[in-house]
Structure formats: structure tokens, C-alpha cells
Nucleic acid binder design. Structure first.
Length: 383
DNA sequence: CGCATTTGACCCGCGC
DNA sequence: GCGCGGGTCAAATGCG
């Protein structure tokens, strides 16, 4: 981290420079100040002032100058501490609102379920498809069913990105407008798991693999898969609820239970992704994520977030940066991101698992067992 | 022989 | 109604 010397006129050996305060680190700045105050009061500390009587007028000038500098610095420190407290308070408020909304949503959904059970005691439960596909649970039957998809773009030479799940290929087709075939996989980690995914190379950049997930797993996931699944679930929940409040459902609950939106990318609804008629959010792991603020603003502008979640976002751009900084400095964020990255580029892929003969460019047999990963390719960066 | 993949056929929704 | 395209099925094939 950059170091600012606030006392350039002092002997560095006597007064150590004050480092720039990390507003979100675990080291409490107030304590720092407290320690410094205590040190400054200690009789052992040389405060750097020459109190000798020789040249007394010059010393007096220097003394006045130093004292005024000390006062200035104290004021500045006080201002920074105030700002720090204010930012912490904002973050606490945001977390509190999120918690409250989550609790409220859980309550409403339980109420809804109770009402439905009371109204239709002989309904025989929800249909199998609805039961398996949690993203549909909240849909109103008269409204068209909306099935969210999450598209993950990652740079890879392999036929499939390793996401920790086991998949079985059940089809392959040539899609219009793309010379590369599209492969269809379904999850085989549990009987009846409704999750499917499509894998296709990007027409603009053959090095980019576009993987589109649909549905929710009906079984426990290994940690590496859980990270990706959580991310896609949160993203799916976001777009499902973005324009139709009546579609608030269990998927949103799933999303709210995640460190939303820890891993996020271009949130634009990508209707062109694989020609999907469904709302699709794209997680672009080929891009450099230097600006989560841009993401948040985009979410605001496109109103892709649920109404109630939108209110959690700051309304003024400077605060967006503030929240972004908070998110990106959060060790949990870093950990989640690292796990997500590990699920994608975590280990080298065996050469035998490469693209097969006639199955088309870059689309080989499905991988099984432990996750197999393409070579490291996706890029993230934080400033 | 069992299992996974391949691939042509079929189904379905949508636009004209 | 028809054609098109996306998605799925299932018989055929390949492989260990």
C-alpha cells in the first residue's frame, strides 16, 4: 500500500511516518491514534523539537510551525476517523437492511406456502418440474413461466470448464450463426437433477467458451461446485425478480443467502446468448474486473435488481465507489472469488480429456469424477 | 458387457 | 398451416 509521509520535515528516526489509513482493515484506526497519543505523552519520546536556548527566536519560529502542523494533522486525522466511522455505519446499515429484507422475504414466502396449502389441501404438491426447478417455484401459473439462465464466459481451450459437477452429454447441435456445435449436458450427480447446461464456443472469439446453466441442483454440491452454483443462483434470482415482482420465489431466497453479489460480471440480460428466449445473465470471466462500481451502476440503470434490493444500493456515485471498495477489500469477497476461480482454473486438465475427433471444434466428451479444469485463462484484477 | 457418447429423428414454440 | 430453429430423445456406436 502506498505510504504517505505526513511529517516530511521531521527526522524519520524520531517520528515515524503515519501510513495511509486502511479504512476497512481489521486494524482499528482509532486504536492507532490512541497508541500514537499515548506515545506522544510518554516522557521517553523525543518529539523532535530542539528546545535549546541558542538562537531562541529561530527555534520559536520552528516550534510554532511544528505545533501548527501537529494541529493540522490532528484535525486531518479526526476528519479521517469521522469519515471512517461514517462509512462503517453505512456498511452496517446496508448489512442490516439486507438481513431485514431477507427475513421479510422468508416470512412472506412461508406465509404464501401456508396459504396455498390451506387453499389447496388436495393439490397433490407441485409438479415435478416445478419441484425440481426452484427458479420456477415462485412463478404465478397464469403468467408465462420465466426460466432464468446464467451464462458463464471463460477463456479456455478445453471442451468444458470444470465446475465441480458431473455431467452427461445428451445431445449436440449446430446452432444458427455459429460454426461451432453446441453441446447439451445434464447433471448426473443425483437422479432426477434438473440442471442442464449448454456449452458452445463464442463465435466472435473461438477461445472463449460459453457455458449456460439452467435450473437448480436438487442435491448437495462439492465446495468448488457450490461456489459456482451459488453465484449462478444469485444471478438467476436477480434477473428473475428484476422485472416481475410476482416472480419473487425460492430462487431469490437462494440468492439472498449468498454473499450477493460477490462474483458478478456483466449483468446485462443477454438474450442473444445461445439464442435463449429466457432471461440470461452473463458472468464474463474473460474480462478484467477493475470496476465493480460500474457493475453496480449498470444494475441500477438497467433496473435488473429486485426493487427491494435496489434500495440497498447507494444513490450517489461516490458512495458506489465507497461500497465497492468495501466489497473488494472484504476478505470474504476475496476468498469467495478465489474459490470461484479455483473452480474454474484450479488445476491442469489431463491431456486425454481434450476435444474428441468428430464432435466439432472444442467439444469433446463430458468429464466425470473429480473436476477437471482447463488451463488458467480467466482474468480478474482489483485496484 | 456396461456405460458414455454420437447423431439423426422427433417435438415444440414461434414468426410469417 | 408451414417452415425454421432450439431442445430432447433414443438407437447406434465406441471404448474400457
Amino acid at each position: 500500500m502506498e505510504t504517505k509521509t505526513l511529517f516530511p520535515f521531521h527526522d524519520a528516526a524520531v517520528v515515524e511516518p503515519i501510513k495511509e489509513l486502511d479504512l476497512f482493515s481489521s486494524a482499528r484506526p482509532e486504536l492507532l491514534l490512541h497508541r500514537r497519543r499515548r506515545r506522544s505523552c510518554s516522557p521517553d519520546v523525543d518529539i523532535g523539537l530542539n528546545l535549546a536556548t541558542s538562537g531562541s527566536s529561530r527555534v520559536t519560529e520552528e516550534e510554532k510551525s511544528s505545533k501548527s502542523r501537529v494541529i493540522e494533522v490532528k484535525v486531518e486525522l479526526s476528519r479521517v476517523l469521522d469519515e471512517n466511522r461514517r462509512l462503517r455505519s453505512m456498511l452496517d446499515q446496508l448489512a442490516g437492511r439486507c438481513e431485514a429484507l431477507h427475513g421479510r422475504l422468508v416470512h412472506l414466502l412461508r406465509e404464501r406456502d401456508r396459504r396455498r396449502a390451506a387453499e389447496k389441501p388436495d393439490a397433490g404438491g407441485i409438479p415435478e418440474m416445478m419441484e425440481n426447478d426452484k427458479s420456477d417455484v415462485g412463478a404465478v401459473p397464469e403468467l408465462p413461466r420465466r426460466r432464468a439462465r446464467v451464462s458463464v464466459r471463460a477463456r479456455s481451450d478445453a471442451s468444458m470448464i470444470g465446475d465441480g459437477c458431473q455431467w452427461r452429454k445428451y445431445g449436440q447441435k449446430m446452432a444458427k450463426g455459429n460454426p461451432c456445435p453446441r453441446a447439451y449436458y445434464r447433471c448426473t450427480m443425483a437422479v432426477g437433477c434438473p440442471v442442464r447446461k449448454q456449452v458452445q464456443r463464442c463465435v466472435e472469439d473461438r477461445g472463449v467458451l460459453v457455458t449456460t446453466y439452467e435450473g437448480s441442483h436438487n442435491h448437495p454440491l462439492p465446495p468448488t461446485a457450490a461456489v459456482m452454483a451459488n453465484t449462478t443462483a444469485a444471478a438467476a434470482a436477480m434477473i428473475l425478480s428484476g422485472s416481475a415482482s410476482s416472480n419473487l420465489g425460492d430462487s431469490i431466497m437462494a440468492g439472498l443467502q449468498r454473499p450477493f453479489p460477490y462474483v458478478a460480471a456483466s449483468p446485462a440480460v443477454d438474450a442473444a446468448t445461445l439464442g435463449a428466449p429466457f432471461p440470461t445473465v452473463t458472468l464474463d470471466l474473460t474480462q478484467s474486473y477493475s470496476s465493480t462500481a460500474a457493475l453496480l451502476r449498470q444494475l441500477q440503470q438497467q433496473q435488473q435488481m429486485p426493487l427491494d434490493l435496489r434500495c440497498l444500493l447507494p444513490q450517489q456515485p461516490p458512495m458506489v465507489e465507497t461500497v465497492t471498495t468495501a466489497i473488494t477489500k472484504d476478505p470474504k469477497f476475496t476468498a469467495a472469488l478465489a474459490a470461484a476461480m479455483a473452480s474454474i482454473v484450479g488445476s491442469p486438465r489431463p491431456s486425454s480429456a481434450g476435444p474428441s475427433d468428430s464432435s466439432g471444434p472444442g467439444l469433446g466428451p463430458a468429464t466425470y469424477g473429480p473436476p477437471q479444469f482447463p488451463k488458467p485463462c480467466a482474468t480478474f484484477s482489483f485496484k
